[in-house]
Amino acid sequence: MAALTPTAAPAPGGTPRRARDPKAVRVRARRRPRVWRGAVLALAGLYFLVPLLSSFVFTVHTPGQGVSFAAYTGILSAEGFTRSLLLSLGLAAATILLALLLAVPALVGVRLGAPRLRPLVEIVCMLPLVVPPIALVTGVTTVLRWGPDHLSRTPLYQTFLAVQNESFPVVLVLAYTVLALPFVYRSLDAGLRAVDVPTLVEAARNCGASRLYVILRVILPNLRSSLAGASFLTLALVLGEYTIASLLGFRPFAVWIVSVSGAQARMSVAVSLLSLLITWALLLLLSRAGTRAASATPAPPAPSGTSASLTSPASGKE
């Protein structure tokens, strides 16, 4: 009882001072970010918009001849446009499928059955980040060259040829899957962290569900938004990838843009603007699908890992 008084005594004198301080701090703190936010936004906007606008003006306006949209109308009839775009989309779809098929069972399995293997899986999945694509492509080229020489008498020879099929180069899907793995891993890992997987599995087993049923009907639905995030990142990566495809001699969309740009400057800029729009539209679609899934099945808030890693492939893609 007596001990209470000394601690209580300074409080009345202290309260007003303490009450005044936070308010002042809060007001200042509120005004400053607002100013900064505006400035940063404006700068970022300029940084993105100025090049875009200049590009656009360049494509439609020829000095002395006025405005013409010929560059854009020319694209659709340009040789290779549809083919390369479809090829890129096909590659992206295959890569997304393969990467998810690899990563989802591995991550779920590790989380449920062997938590001690998790660091190992993480390292393996993150490794591609530190391997530059140029190193990867060198390795792949070497193998592709070495393979046919040594395996010419075995059925594997046919495999080597099939993998490099010009119309759908599986070897690119394999390489892109490796590149996409870190982003897929991050996104899925964040999604898995947000739900108590072991308890949900046990609850479902207790309701009579088999293991497969649990994974398909309980775990995957709860991972929807992070699956969408992983697909989103992989799509962005594949649409913009140039190094590997070009060095291996294939012509997906990014390579086609570059090859076209040499011949017709105006059209190449128009194409890259268009590709930007296409990519945005696709990403928007995917993220809409993800959020719709998430809001229809109110899953935990979007995993933080997704938004954090969003920047990396975009900056890598250029």
């Binding site: 046990e202 609850a203 207790n206 088999s210 099945t297 899953a299």
Partner: peptide
């Protein structure tokens, strides 16, 4: 195996399936 035992369990931590509403949670089994 756990899914063939005739025992209903309520867990210490909240264990409802987050993607299902109350009715579907109850009807899961």
């Amino acid at each position: 195996p756990a899914n063939r035992r005739d025992a209903g369990m309520v867990f210490q931590s909240y264990s409802l399936f987050p993607h299902l509403n109350a009715r579907d949670n109850v009807a899961f089994g």
